[in-house]
């Protein structure tokens, strides 16, 4: 755990020392704010719960983009600059390395996600919202963030450059997003499998409406675990290639 925290600490400092982290967070907050004002609030009267639901709907998109942008550099950049040797020659194992990198990205992303909280809070001014709805929405949003960040960490582990890592993250994430479309044209039992792997349609809609289903939580946590495990296995296997 100590090794993981050491990696996370340095990585976090790297985020704070570069413009990239600030730029991505600022862009996400601006876009989220604009979308909230234009669509969630809009000009027509709406139920407060509908406003919150729409807020979590478009936050999904901006958050997964931010997750990809902030994770694509994690390991690929170390490889590009040659500093990966420093980590490879240390007694840290691959899991500590991958875990530390992931932890730092999640710290930044969680801060970013929580910084959007002023938007649902604004609804309290003229509306009536359940705290549970907001809690469920943010739980879902953070689980999606964690899943896409794990995908991004994996893509970064297998790529030689940040650009390739970003591209690989986009491809994998889009594949998970369009599963529900494929499910529509597939036959049983494939339809159930494809539908289950749908990152948004099957598992996120409940959170948007204020529902927390164990199945959805398990799905997102499984995605995190599988991709982080693949990333650490890949990092460990490099020594043998």
């Amino acid at each position: 755990m100590r090794g993981m925290l050491l990696i996370a600490r340095r990585e976090l400092a790297a985020y704070l020392n570069s413009y990239w982290g600030y730029a991505v967070i600022a862009a996400v907050l601006v876009v989220d704010g604009l979308l909230f004002n234009a669509f969630a609030l809009g000009n027509q009267p709406k139920l407060s719960s509908k406003v919150i639901e729409e807020f979590f709907y478009f936050s999904f998109g901006t958050t997964i983009i931010a997750s990809i942008l902030l994770t694509m550099r994690l390991i690929a950049e170390e490889r590009q600059t040659g500093t990966i040797v420093l980590l490879d020659s240390s007694p840290l194992n691959a899991w500590q390395l991958v875990g530390g990198k992931y932890l730092s990205a999640m710290t930044v992303l969680t801060t970013m996600v929580l910084a959007t909280a002023y938007m649902p809070a604004l609804v309290f001014v003229n509306g009536k919202v359940s705290y549970g709805h907001i809690f469920a929405g943010y739980t879902g949003l953070l689980l999606v963030t964690a899943s896409v960040a794990a995908i991004g960490t994996f893509a970064s582990a297998i790529s030689r450059s940040q650009l390739v890592a970003g591209f690989a993250s986009v491809v994998i994430t889009i594949a998970f997003l369009v599963m529900w479309l494929l499910a529509k044209v597939a036959d049983p039992p494939l339809v159930d499998v494809l539908s289950y792997f749908s990152l948004f349609d099957r598992h996120y809609r409940g959170f948007m409406r204020g529902q927390i289903n164990t199945e959805d939580v398990v799905f997102y946590l499984s995605i995190c675990f599988v991709f982080l495990m693949l990333a650490s296995r890949f990092m460990a296997a490099r020594r043998w290639r």
């Binding site: 340095r10 790297a14 020392n17 500093t83 990966i84 040797v85 420093l86 020659s89 240390s90 007694p91």
Partner: peptide
């Protein structure tokens, strides 16, 4: 790796 110190040809340094 705990017992070894390694310097590759290009020193692996965090420039910042």
């Amino acid at each position: 790796r705990k017992r070894i110190g390694f310097l590759p040809e290009d020193p692996p340094l965090y420039r910042e």
